[in-house]
């Protein structure tokens, strides 16, 4: 698995046919899972029900059950807020810091800009997931540390993106005009640059949520994330591995949810990018 921290592509074809509506539908479902899990999940995601241990999909348990007889669908529903919630938090935190960092770097004098960008290069020079693993392992296990470790590796992508945009925009006539009128650099940044940068960042955020989700679940799968019995998706896959030969559903459905979610965010990101390019 690789984590993309590179700037988003500029020219992207708009997803065709039913792909975009399907992606939007997935997003609506995920929102419902996150906001109303109690109404959607048919069973308690935590309570053990040993009589139903490792039961295959049926009308009662549409995604089957796990080794504790817990309904896999209900665990996926409740797990959405952990996996997706953490992914969204990582991306927004990274975007916030990266935007500020990139904007300051872009507006700063060349020496400071150079120094700030070399720091960014340091982060790009190290394999992202390995760095995240090292950070998460050093600060301790748990979803908090996963969020922190991934945010640490994620922000440089935004910093570089925003710095590039700022360098491009600061030479634009409207910015030059504002500068000639004596408007302060901070006001120029706030009023005449950031609003344009935000559109680009929005596209990147949408696409990155999918990547961040995969990264969060990967770290949980590796044992650095959520602790049992939290129904986090990566942990579900980790827990399911000993039973794969006898209970395929336990691994396949959480895996499918991760794939669908990442794909949906990627498609919507592509749609936003193509709309912006148009």
């Amino acid at each position: 698995m690789s984590i993309s921290t590179q700037p988003a592509r500029r020219t992207i074809a708009r997803p065709k046919g039913v792909l975009l509506p399907l992606a939007l539908l997935v997003l609506v479902i995920l929102a419902a899972f996150t906001l109303l899990p109690g109404l959607i999940a048919p069973h308690d995601p935590i309570a053990l029900a040993m009589a139903d241990r490792l039961k295959p999909p049926s009308l009662t348990h549409i995604f089957g059950t796990d080794e504790g007889g817990r309904d896999v669908f209900s665990r996926i529903v409740y797990g959405t807020r952990y996996s997706l919630g953490v992914a969204i938090a990582i991306v927004f935190a990274s975007a916030l810091f990266g935007v500020i960092y990139g904007a300051v770097s872009g507006m700063a004098r060349q020496g400071i800009d150079n120094l700030m960008m070399r720091i960014v290069d340091l982060f790009f020079g190290f394999p992202a997931l390995v760095l995240a693993l090292a950070v998460a392992a050093s600060i301790g296990r748990g979803l908090d540390s996963v969020a922190l470790s991934l945010a640490i590796i994620w922000w440089p992508g935004y910093a570089r993106l925003v710095r590039g945009e700022v360098l491009r925009l600061r030479e634009r006539p409207h910015v030059e005009a504002a500068r000639a009128l004596g408007v302060s650099e901070m006001t120029i940044l706030r009023r005449h640059i950031i609003p344009f940068v935000v559109q680009e960042v929005n596209v990147r955020i949408t696409t990155d949520i999918g990547y961040a989700l995969v990264a969060v679940t990967a770290l949980s799968f590796l044992g650095l994330g959520a602790n049992s019995p939290t129904p986090e998706w990566g942990l579900l896959i980790r827990d399911s591995r000993p039973y794969f030969g006898s209970a395929w559903w336990y691994l396949v459905f959480p895996g499918t949810m991760i794939m669908l979610t990442a794909t949906a965010f990627s498609l919507i990101g592509d749609a936003l990018a193509s709309r912006r390019a148009a």
């Binding site: 000993p242 039973y243 030969g245 209970a247």
Partner: peptide
């Protein structure tokens, strides 16, 4: 070998 797998195999 994990028990479920041992019993199945």
């Amino acid at each position: 070998v994990p028990l479920d797998e041992a019993l199945r195999i």
